[in-house]
Design a protein around this nucleic acid. Structure first.
Ligand SMILES: [Mn+2]
Ligand SMILES: [Mn+2]
Ligand SMILES: [Zn+2]
Ligand SMILES: [Zn+2]
Lengths: 145, 145
DNA sequence: TTAATAATGAGAATGGCTATCATTATACAT
DNA sequence: ATGTATAATGATAGCCATTCTCATTATTAA
């Protein structure tokens, strides 16, 4: 629910002495509606065309620094932004190699535990201290397939 | 073995009417020694400091276009290059969030099959046509941990 | 209301990467 | 071997996503 998301972000920002301005609220709403990570250009052309790119990028950086956003990169190295895991929950991605749209997916408890255990096993066997994992499924989305 | 790698790349390039020049051979040798994907800057400063960056980038593009290299991106969106899967075999990555070094790992048949099956299952349940998967383990490498 | 501080917007600057083009090296036919 | 066609190289300029600067505006709190 968007109202609850706003409340959680607002509280988090207040704790970090960062203001939840109108522009930042519009931005969070746009990302909430997206259903997956989106690039600055995508957000700018689709939802936030009245916000200057310099302001949009600064908003992204500010919210990332405080942990509200996470930054990834698409196949061309362009930055993509989504809500942090503590807001969205742990999940994975379907990446369409044709239209480049990324969709959030939840594995469910059984599959998620299996992935976590596999990751932990292989990390341990290499003397690696695991803090997380990423599983992306590549292919064609329902529209492109 | 490096000699065999050179032979396979040479054959592949010949079939695509691309020459396996001395510079390209040095580049393949450097990547072979790396043990994981590396950025153009990393390769330039460590192994190939006498090769101009413009030539290095062109080499990367040419070898990627013909399928000898695959391009990914690190946490800052900087391009990383590694040998294609048909040369290196399917594998996954340990990504150190401290020093940013990426290490190739092989899951072994059992774990690999499990990951592939999980990916296929979740793809199917979303009407997604899977063509591949990526599993990265994040954390601290043996040196940084 | 005022003073202090934070957010915004316009534009310049940065940096990784690519395009251009003249020069040099390689392959192949003669 | 020699010449010719074509590909590779290197210096440089250009591109574009992103960040920085700084003057202006909005928000907070005394
Ligand atoms: Mn996501
Ligand atoms: Mn690899
Ligand atoms: Zn698609
Ligand atoms: Zn490390």
């Amino acid at each position: 629910m968007l109202t609850e998301l706003h409340a959680r972000v607002k509280k988090h920002l207040r704790e970090n002495d960062v203001r939840y301005s109108t522009g930042r609220q519009k931005f969070i709403a746009a990302l909430h509606a997206a259903g997956g990570p989106r690039s600055a250009t995508h957000l700018h052309t689709s939802e936030l065309d009245d916000v200057p790119l310099s302001s949009l990028y600064r908003t992204l950086t500010v919210l990332e620094n405080v942990g509200v956003l996470e930054r990834t990169h698409d196949g061309d190295g362009v930055a993509m932004f989504e809500l942090g895991e503590w807001l969205l929950g742990h999940h994975h991605h379907l990446i369409c190699t044709s239209c480049d749209i990324v969709t959030d997916i939840d594995l469910g408890n059984d599959l998620e535990n299996a992935v976590a255990e596999i990751s932990a096993t292989v990390a341990a066997s290499h003397g690696f201290t695991m803090t997380g994992h990423t599983l992306d499924v590549l292919g064609l989305c329902e529209d492109c397939g």
